[in-house]
């Protein structure tokens, strides 16, 4: 068994196959980790939306984005997040590795309900934006009393 494995190994080694296989896997890993697990390819922020009986809650990942560089617009069922992420390269330093995006971004949503625009609450904390969008009164479930 050992001999067979050894022989196979040296044969593959001679063909340079193992080495190129290793390279394929490294490339695969890198691709996977950068663009699938972690990054949205167009640089738009990742978001989530949760629907409670009286409100929608949208969260968006915006690390390093300052409040003043962020715009949130709501009209009826339309919601738009836009902004800019600035990265200041510290003076006198050379770049060694750059993975974080510097860009302006826009992401818009069509909400499933009309929103009470005046009561929208936005909070930017630790690079995470939380938007609380209360549903308009006409959209909320109403309890009907049975006579």
């Amino acid at each position: 068994m050992w001999n067979t494995a050894n022989e196979l190994n040296s044969m593959l080694g001679a063909m340079g196959l193992l080495r190129s296989m290793n390279r394929i896997f490294t490339d695969f890993d890198r691709h996977y980790s950068n663009s699938f697990v972690w990054k949205i390819s167009d640089g738009a922020p990742r978001t989530s939306m949760y629907d409670s009986s009286d409100r929608l809650v949208i969260t968006a990942e915006l690390p390093g984005v300052k409040k003043e560089d962020l715009n949130v617009k709501v009209q009826g069922k339309y919601l738009e997040l836009s902004g800019e992420r600035r990265i200041d390269i510290p003076e006198g330093f050379e770049k060694r590795r750059v993975e974080r995006d510097v860009n302006s971004f826009t992401r818009s949503f069509t909400l499933p309900y009309d929103i009470d625009v005046d009561k929208v609450d936005a909070k930017l904390e630790s690079g995470l934006l939380t938007l609380t969008l209360p549903k308009a009164a006409s959209e909320q479930l109403k309890q009907i009393t049975i006579h």
Binding site: N34, W38, T59, P63, E94, V98
Partner: peptide, 21 residues
């Protein structure tokens, strides 16, 4: 995996990593 930027000069190495939320 947090995305990072790395900068270097003669005095130091800087590492900036995104960990939103």
């Amino acid at each position: 995996i947090p995305l990072v930027d790395i900068y270097e000069n003669e005095e130091a190495i800087l590492l900036h990593a995104d960990m939103p939320g």
